[in-house]
Design a protein around this nucleic acid. Structure first.
Lengths: 359, 359
DNA sequence: CCGGTTAACAAAATCGTTTTACTTCACCGT
DNA sequence: ACGGTGAAGTAAAACGATTTTGTTAACCGG
């Protein structure tokens, strides 16, 4: 059915080797034979099977990205989108394809088994996890994005603790007392011991330090840490739950989200409840997605270079593949103060005089 | 170095067959042997090579998406993002990975050769093109998105001619005389005969019909058709070029973009020039990307179901793979009139009284 | 006791390439 | 005339699985 190299060889009256040379190493054979073979290749419409080729050469021409969520969810998060775009830049440089590997029926490890790629990037996978272990068994070079730095694993990320500290300091400096923290849930619970994802732990530690500095604590009753899906819908639901329950005097005056995507949901929830930002509610995020500066009011957030993360991580993975020694990368992140955070109103929360215009 | 099935077989004192059965068809062998083999598999950390497996089974567990642009450019377009998300939905259902295949050093055909996938989706590839031909040679089932319907190729799209007609009718109904059309350039010029992409031709035909209906023509001097990259930057540049050159009385009063992404650029250009939308300039787009309704003013556009396009196209490709007979799909598109289009001002363009607030 | 079925496993073919390790032959200088 | 060199091409061995076909022995009814 399919035309194989054997068909070409037979038709041209040469060996498979010669056909292979004609295509891959033209200098090895005479111009005459080469042209004849090539003519037959064109005539019969022969295209070498990429799989068979990959089997012998050991090169696939693709790098993989292990996603903690289904593709359609992952790309709904602008920050992840940025990371993927960054990876895409490196792919472009090297002429590679990018295989996105979502969990197979909920199992990330299954995706890691199946990956037919030259190198792999992971998102939010820590060292010592089942997945990391498997990749090592497969001898597949891989680099973690937003995982954790560790000896046996290369990671690309930011100083999450410091960034979180800075963000919370800003909120506390404004005078907020009652604060809701929208914490990231681990999409795929590789380490079921913890309810939170790895970077989330670090950020909580940073928050904690900011509180401690003021003699306060993260587990005080006026601070609520809510695990939330890192999406607009997740943020919206969590915010509504926070604001609808309890009496108004006990309501938070600030919402700190660990992802801008979730902060977007907080905007939506506030709007639907007629709560004005930042007059009645301060909102802060994490990531600085492209929309953040276009919101009304523009979102105060921690800027982290998503695209650069992806690009650098991919480059590191390829360096690993090439056998180079590489080390962790800690990229620069910074607090960007915009209009969504302000000092809390002193009196009790009340209906705003004018319907707020948001987004 | 790597642990192969042979190593397991030797260590367990059985044949490769038995190991393979233990993993893939447990019923075929005795529970005793199976458990012993499986124990050794776990102990030695054996993971079957996906490539070797793909070679024999003929299944890769992935579908491919042939992109007309580098990944980072493609994902910068929210509409393409939606399509990819749709494909992701189908991937999720079937437990498949998604390989994004950008042109290799500018050559889309090269990406089509290399694709190691079960089925392929293409964007903007027409029938009779080199790529379509190659895929047929490879016996690779594929479905085109926004290509052209043809006998020998399955396509998923909308009725571009009708949609464009409707959009332009709306603009003309408002009374616009001088109009700039931002037309899509083919990212990869598969058919160098035409300066425009395939869907672009159809849309121009639709525009043309709307003009003809009023005794006017697309090639009249007051109508400018500008080829433009389908991105914010591309739209911005083209709009600036349109508005900066020529005297004000000859300036267009409406900009019709064939992609919302480009319309976004038109917004930016107008804002930077102090031109108020829609008072001094009407802007219309195509696609209805998620941002469109959040702009200020909200964008008038043609809504087309990007995510559905992707999901359905992927499902069709898999049906093709399964040997089912499938046919084209024409999805529903509709005009969504929002605030960015209005009747043109009668007098000459002048500085707006209030600085416009955009986005 | 014997042909026939079945369970359990093994041997070998297959998938479609690349690559290594020859063979053959012409040519060249001495 | 003769060993050496290089060019041109081939046969066969990987690559690492799956799958088809065999083989062996046990078991079973008659």
């Amino acid at each position: 059915m399919r035309v194989t190299i054997k068909d070409i060889a037979k038709r041209a009256g040469v060996s498979k080797t010669t056909v292979s040379f004609a295509l891959n190493d033209p200098e090895r054979i005479s111009a005459e034979t080469r042209d004849r073979v090539l003519a037959i290749v064109a005539e019969m419409g022969y295209v070498p099977d990429p799989v068979a080729r990959a089997l012998t050469t050991g090169r696939h021409g693709a790098i993989g990205l292990l996603l903690p969520q289904p593709i359609h969810e992952a790309l709904a998060n602008p920050y992840l989108c940025e990371i993927v775009r960054g990876i895409g830049e490196t792919c472009e440089e090297r002429g590679l394809a990018l295989t996105m590997l979502p969990p197979v029926r909920g199992a990330l490890i299954e995706a890691a088994r199946r990956a037919a790629v030259d190198a792999l990037l992971t998102i939010g996978v820590g060292p010592g996890t089942e997945v990391a272990e498997l990749l090592r068994k497969r001898h597949l070079p891989f680099v973690a994005i937003d995982g954790l730095a560790a000896d046996n694993m290369v990671n690309v990320g930011i100083d999450d603790e410091a960034a979180a500290y800075e963000l919370m300091r800003h909120i506390l400096d404004l005078g907020h007392e009652r604060i809701a923290i929208l914490a990231l849930m681990p999409e795929v619970c590789a380490a079921p011991a913890s309810c939170f994802s790895r970077v989330c732990e670090l950020r909580l530690a940073g928050f904690s330090r900011a509180f401690a500095e003021r003699g306060r604590a993260l587990d005080a009753p006026e601070i609520r840490v809510v695990p939330v899906e890192g999406s607009l819908e997740g943020g919206r639901r969590a915010t509504l739950a926070c604001l609808e329950s309890g009496d108004r005097a006990a309501m938070p005056t600030a919402i700190v989200a660990m992802a801008d995507a979730a902060a977007l949901g907080a905007y939506a929830a506030c709007r639907s409840l007629g709560i004005s930002v930042p007059a009645d509610m301060s909102i802060a995020g994490f990531d600085d997605i492209p929309q953040a500066s276009l919101l009304d009011p523009p979102l105060t957030t921690i800027r982290q270079p998503g695209s650069e993360k992806g690009a650098k991580a991919a480059a590191l993975a390829l360096a690993l593949l090439a056998g180079d020694a590489v080390s962790h990368l800690v990229l620069r992140a910074e607090l960007v103060v915009r209009g969504s955070t302000a000092a809390p109103r002193s009196g009790p929360l009340q209906a705003p005089p004018v319907a707020p215009r948001l987004q």
